[in-house]
Design a protein around this nucleic acid. Sequence first.
DNA 1: AAGTGAGGGTTGGATTTTCCAACTCTTCGA
DNA 2: TCGAAGAGTTGGAAAATCCAACCCTCACTT
Lengths: 156, 156
Amino acid sequence: MAATKDPRPCSIADTLALVGEKYSLLVLREVCLGNSRFDQLVRNIGAPRDILATRLRRLVDAGILTKRAYSERPQRFEYRPTQAGLELEPVLLTLMAWGDRHVRNDDDRPMVVEHGCGNELLPVVTCSACGDTVRHEDLTAHPQAPGWTVTGPTVA
Amino acid sequence: MAATKDPRPCSIADTLALVGEKYSLLVLREVCLGNSRFDQLVRNIGAPRDILATRLRRLVDAGILTKRAYSERPQRFEYRPTQAGLELEPVLLTLMAWGDRHVRNDDDRPMVVEHGCGNELLPVVTCSACGDTVRHEDLTAHPQAPGWTVTGPTVA
DNA sequence: AAGTGAGGGTTGGATTTTCCAACTCTTCGA
DNA sequence: TCGAAGAGTTGGAAAATCCAACCCTCACTT
């Protein structure tokens, strides 16, 4: 999935090169839920075992997951998110919220996440400087590197 | 990419079924930046033209993009995000922030996004109820449907 | 002692996608 | 008349995915 000729330097593309392959983010979903063993992942994700093995290697190499033996004799392993992996959780939450809104007709959500404050988590992306919810119209893109051509009076 | 046997009902998986294929989110990046024409997309994304055509059809079908003629005679088209498409922008922003932090060593970010408040946008996912930044430890998953087995004392 | 089952993969081959370059078609401009 | 731009489509080679079957180690049962 390496962007062999991607003409744009871009952190979105770079990130997707690590976690954008099929099943990778679902692996992350599972390990964030605490499901850490190979067979659990196979069952819960529905991925072919060989593909899953490949993905796990990739994610471990990328520093997103760690692989640890939870038992020698018989050797058994578990996969857990690293700090970097946990920092991708907001991506999952945002994807989930979008899916709840747009692919399901809300209200038959397969999962609800509860926040420590006692309420159901409705994740919102905000500007850390002012705290406001991010709206498309409030954004302006500033390319820092060559390769970016932003057409309109537009925005990221 | 349809999850043919995904044993888990999951909005993350559902959303990825729509936008998780290679290049789809980069298409969204481009249209959010205002680059709306086929050839621009080919150049900026670096995708094969045939694949891009396929992705565009998918995204239009999914209601994430619209296709409009901006010129008859010669027929020319533009792709723009729908409201639903724009609501995926937070996913892009979060992916970008993660990449800035973890794949680049910060400080050579290819793009900076400015927020309407005048500051550089550092996107943070917060709980809409209490306003706090979402941390993994504060989350508890509540499966609503069968098929979910959350192992540990864990979390989404 | 033999058989069974769990866990964590690997292997071979069929199927599906991607990739790439070339080609098409239409219309505008020189 | 001769490009050139825009928006794709097409055919065939290369790569990735899918699937079922297999392997290995150890533990537990009978």
